[in-house]
Design a binder for these strands. Structure first.
Lengths: 211, 211
DNA sequence: GCTTAAGCGGACCCTCGGTCCGTATAGTCG
DNA sequence: CGACTATACGGACCGAGGGTCCGCTTAAGC
């Protein structure tokens, strides 16, 4: 499988498409309002190029999501303290959830677009399996913790994009309050030190709380 | 607002449509595969009738869902022991979640259809607010329990149709094992009596575990 | 420069949600 | 029982948008 590298213009166009899609999705409030034709036009390419490069709409969204998620993934698999593998399980589990929540907050529209990408539910996408595997692996290392497989699913469900969107949008919950609530909830699930002080947790794990 | 009652044939057709939709959705494995034209044909009416009676696709799904959910709702608001209002909070919260899970298992395709009904996310549908209000109200009555609003959202997220579908479908988790896992997880969130014996919980609350 | 195959792009197709309006009939009143 | 009307019916029709196709363009190797 030689896997010859693509032509230069193809690579350039691919970038342009991802960039255009990101911009458009971020600006419209319903991701479904962004059509493939829109993206093609904004990227200055033809529709054919979109579909050749990404297969279909779902493929494009996935590619975009993966690209934006890459840094976080990196930080988790080989990064420093809070997220990295060296952190003790309880703390790391909390850090993972917080990082994922922050990511969804920072890329609200993109995450929404991904989840409503029709076809196959969020579950079954590569990145979900990765998150679930990572998180349940961490939970497993908690002494005396059982049912880590389901628990990981349930905890991940608590940060699903549409729920996050609902809470911060419709219900006007601030970013910091939401992070604190999640930390509180997750802490309860993990057991151990019941509450780590007050429930403010304004800066539990900086992680990807930037941008 | 006199609210004059509809003509007899209209009522009959409405029933036929709901029935046809239910059957079709239950039999195809992707709910999206069922088109409005399909439903109209199966019900023996014209498309116009569908849209006049339900507004749009989302409206039809909602109406169907509400109709099927009605018994459960009844059991919760004025039913007997496990689900009814007389049950002490901790037990009732567990019963509510189990009943909802069973409902989603029994009406897998319908629940999926509802969640992917496009337009507005699950959140914002009347029935969700009802579940959330009910559950968080119950949690509130647990002595020393905090963050019941978010906790209710998170617990409900753990029984979302697509997750349930993923676990029982792709992952071949049996109904009873799933119920036990959920009970275990929820029990941990609620605190109190850590584990009520083993984690089997084969028949925590019969409730709507029938059909 | 010449060759060639990877890449391009937009006209085109098809499905599907949703609308419209001429026709049919349930319900009512004389 | 016949006339009248509001209500409902239903399928032809429309527009949007995802996805395809194929003749043209152009990067890249010689």
């Amino acid at each position: 499988m030689p896997e010859r590298k693509p032509r230069a213009d193809a690579a350039r166009n691919r970038e342009a498409v991802l960039e255009a899609a990101d911009r458009l999705i971020a600006n419209r409030d319903r991701p479904a309002q962004v059509t493939m034709a829109d993206i093609a036009a904004a990227a200055g390419v033809g529709k054919g190029t979109l579909f050749r490069g990404f297969g279909d709409r779902t493929g494009l969204i996935h590619a975009l999501f993966e690209a934006r998620l890459e840094p976080v993934r990196q930080a988790v698999t080989e990064g420093p303290h809070p997220l990295g593998p060296a952190t003790p399980p309880r703390e790391r589990a909390l850090a993972l959830l917080d990082a994922l929540l922050c990511f969804k907050l920072d890329h609200r529209h993109l995450s929404l677009a991904l989840e409503e990408a029709g076809s196959d539910s969020p579950y079954g996408a590569a990145h979900y399996d990765w998150w679930h595997g990572t998180l349940s692996g961490v939970l497993e290392r908690l002494p005396g913790f059982t049912g880590s497989d389901f628990a990981a699913h349930a905890l991940l469900a608590a940060v699903r994009a549409d729920l996050v969107d609902h809470l911060t949008g419709r219900r006007n919950l601030s970013r910091e309050r939401l992070r604190a609530q999640l930390a509180d909830f997750a802490g309860r699930v993990l057991g151990g030190p019941a509450s780590d002080g007050t429930a403010d947790g304004a800066e539990p794990t900086s992680g990807t709380g930037n941008r």
